[in-house]
Structures are given as structure tokens and as C-alpha cells.
């Protein structure tokens, strides 16, 4: 891995991974069909697993581009889910 690729992947893991986790926490908090306090805690518990999963992915993907794509795509999906579930 080149230094540039490592830097890019590290950023993907840190920023992308955290963003993915945060979006998952938000999306699940507003869409899960359970009481909202429970939706919140489930969202948080999933979020931490996604953060670490994203880091694993960022360093295992074949290229830095794929690493970013693999994190940004589900992030967008979750962002959409969040906007859809937002209380009107």
C-alpha cells in the first residue's frame, strides 16, 4: 500500500466509518417500529459495530476508491432512510 492509499483509507475508516455509524444510529432511531427509547439504543449498539466493520472494510478493499465507495453508498442509503423516517 502506498502512503497516499493508506492516508485515504485511514480517512475513510475514521470519518466515513464514524459517519456511517452516526447515520445508522439516526436512521434506526426514527424508523424502527418500537418505542423510541428502544429504537435509540438499538441504533447506537448497531452504530458501534458498523464503525468497526467500516474500518475493516476500508483496509481490506482492493483499492482506496472501492473503500470509499463501500462506505459512502450505505451511508447515503441510511441518510435516505433517516429523511424518510423523520417525523413530519
Amino acid at each position: 500500500m502506498t502512503p497516499l492509499s493508506i492516508t485515504s483509507r485511514t480517512l475513510a475508516a475514521a470519518l466515513g466509518g464514524y459517519g456511517l455509524g452516526a447515520l445508522a444510529a439516526m436512521a434506526l432511531a426514527v424508523t424502527l417500529p418500537v418505542a423510541r427509547d428502544q429504537a435509540v439504543i438499538i441504533g447506537i449498539m448497531v452504530a458501534f459495530l458498523l464503525c468497526s466493520g467500516a474500518a475493516i472494510w476500508a483496509f481490506s478493499a482492493r483499492s482506496a476508491w472501492r473503500a470509499w465507495a463501500g462506505i459512502l453508498a450505505p451511508s447515503l442509503l441510511l441518510a435516505g432512510l433517516y429523511l424518510w423516517g423523520l417525523p413530519a
Binding site: 444510529a25 435509540v40 417525523p87
Partner: peptide
């Protein structure tokens, strides 16, 4: 390790609370 993160959830991952409680963490 995992529970260590959970213990700090309101510090590092408060976004779900803000989303579901319209930024009113006190209510949560």
C-alpha cells in the same frame, strides 16, 4: 471493549438521541 463504547454513548454517539427526541436530550 464494546461495553466501554456503550458507556460513553451519549458522549460519542448522541445523534440517534437527537434524531428521535428532536434535539431534546434531557427528554431522553
Amino acid at each position: 471493549t464494546y461495553s466501554g463504547l456503550l458507556l460513553f454513548m451519549t458522549l460519542i454517539m448522541p445523534w440517534g438521541i437527537d434524531a428521535a427526541y428532536e434535539n431534546d436530550r434531557r427528554a431522553f
